[in-house]
Design a protein around this nucleic acid. Structure first.
Ligand SMILES: NC(=O)c1ccc[n+]([C@@H]2O[C@H](COP(=O)([O-])OP(=O)(O)OC[C@H]3O[C@@H](n4cnc5c(N)ncnc54)[C@H](O)[C@@H]3O)[C@@H](O)[C@H]2O)c1
Ligand SMILES: NC(=O)c1ccc[n+]([C@@H]2O[C@H](COP(=O)([O-])OP(=O)(O)OC[C@H]3O[C@@H](n4cnc5c(N)ncnc54)[C@H](O)[C@@H]3O)[C@@H](O)[C@H]2O)c1
Lengths: 210, 210
DNA sequence: ACTCCATTGTGAAAATTATCACGACTTCTT
DNA sequence: AAGAAGTCGTGATAATTTTCACAATGGAGT
């Protein structure tokens, strides 16, 4: 595809930059330096300049970056002009929190459909999003390329297989299961228990100043 | 502190290894190779061996690793013999999900106290955890070194300052705000909107086979 | 006891990521 | 108009992380 040159580390920071540029724009600021941005997002200013430079010369020497221009640039780079629809599987504690959350502030990604196995939940609207039975996945999940997985770990592989068959491209996996997918499908794991344990480990084993 | 030699990338994987070793142990397996482990946790087997090697020679050539031994080793390395208490601030959608979640399967980390500003929520027990008013933070938050932050973004800095004053060491921050802390305090950000946007970006801009 | 096989542990190389440091250019000030 | 101050873009370097590849060695089978 187009920009295979952009380092993954950079790509992961783009949404963060985008959000802060939006904030600045809403505050009416029209100029920003890598130094200011650095303080806001806690990323070294040289790293920010390097990140931006992969997209060309976006700023002006001695001046900084024009907020509106940069924002527009990232909006299209991050495909925020079109809406990306996302499905959520597993309307439990975590799934419900996501459905109720307004992802779409400054953000054109929407959860538009949810699935669960529990007949208590099926048929409801949660946060304005309809919950269907998981058996209807095949019928209802069309043209959606991204799924959020918040089912119990034991169900993760089964559901993943269904999603893969249905032609999903990316999965944001919140279950502790490390799911197996064909290599053209991208999975990002967010493993809350691991994050918490890792934080505790760092606190106990790393010296205070790093 | 003790093991400043262990790369951060390695440290972040330790809880993952620990969990899978627990699973294997419960399944009655008493032997495992880096290759098997690799398939389960989706980390290259050479990386796993390298990770383990920072702690010494834990395995046997031609045999692999003894599950029980390795598990015991990681249990003490990850301080899973003692309980780590954690506070949660902000009992909203996300906070409630965490309180209801049983973090402690194979895991000695517990949320033991929660705080909120909403008097509707104060006084309740959610998932068996008492919710106190945020104004009681100073009085009630003692000896707890780790906090999970799930308040609205606009409150993040205020609450962070309170936590810092109270002597917290680590914060797991779920708000989109990039909070500012003295440098001896460790903050891990889990930014769900950023993760989702990054996933979408990868899908659209990276070729299918990587 | 001997051979074969699997698998570790690790030097060395490669890949990725972050940071330094400065020349070039812009804007601001006087 | 000239000089000072500020800030980018980037070559070079450093730091970190991953991966290769294989000698060394323990275990299993005969
Ligand atoms: N809640 C947390 O704080 C938390 C933290 C870390 C990890 N997780 C993980 O996230 C996942 C979800 O956690 P949760 O607390 O929301 O669990 P939950 O039990 O509250 O929710 C799971 C939901 O999935 C539904 N479900 C079960 N089988 C299904 C199937 N085959 N198809 C569709 N839906 C199905 C259930 O009906 C339920 O609504 C789990 O894997 C959990 O380990 C949760
Ligand atoms: N829910 C999600 O799916 C989701 C996704 C991404 C990010 N987030 C972020 O996580 C945070 C929490 O999200 P949420 O959906 O749970 O929000 P929420 O509004 O449901 O919950 C926030 C809670 O914080 C409490 N609160 C407000 N001010 C407080 C204060 N000063 N002290 C203590 N408590 C206070 C509120 O009473 C409420 O219970 C937000 O910053 C949000 O941006 C949430």
């Amino acid at each position: 595809m187009d920009q295979n040159k952009i380092p993954q580390a950079t790509a992961k920071r783009l949404p963060l930059y985008y959000r802060f540029l939006n904030n600045l724009n809403q505050q009416g600021k029209n100029r920003v330096s890598s130094k200011e941005l650095s303080e806001a997002v806690k990323v070294d200013s040289a790293t920010i300049r390097r990140d931006f430079s992969y997209f060309g010369a976006l700023g002006k020497k001695g001046y900084g970056y024009n907020v509106e221009y940069l924002l527009g640039f990232f909006r299209s780079t991050l495909d925020q002009n079109e809406i990306t629809e996302v499905a959520l599987i597993g309307v439990g504690n975590l799934g419900t929190a996501f459905l109720n959350y307004n992802f779409m502030k400054n953000n054109n990604i929407r959860i538009t459909i949810a699935f669960d196995a529990d007949t208590e939940k099926v048929g409801k609207d949660i946060g304005g999003i309809p919950v269907h039975h998981i058996d209807e996945l095949d019928e209802k999940l069309n043209d959606i390329k991204v799924a959020i997985l918040t089912v119990p770990a034991a169900e993760a592989d089964i559901i993943t297989n269904k999603l893969v068959e249905k032609g999903i491209s990316g999965i944001l996996n919140f279950t502790p299961a490390r799911i197996t997918v064909p290599k053209h499908i991208r999975v990002h794991h967010i493993d809350l228990a691991v994050e918490l344990q890792a934080l505790v480990y760092f606190l106990k084993h790393y010296s205070l100043d790093n």
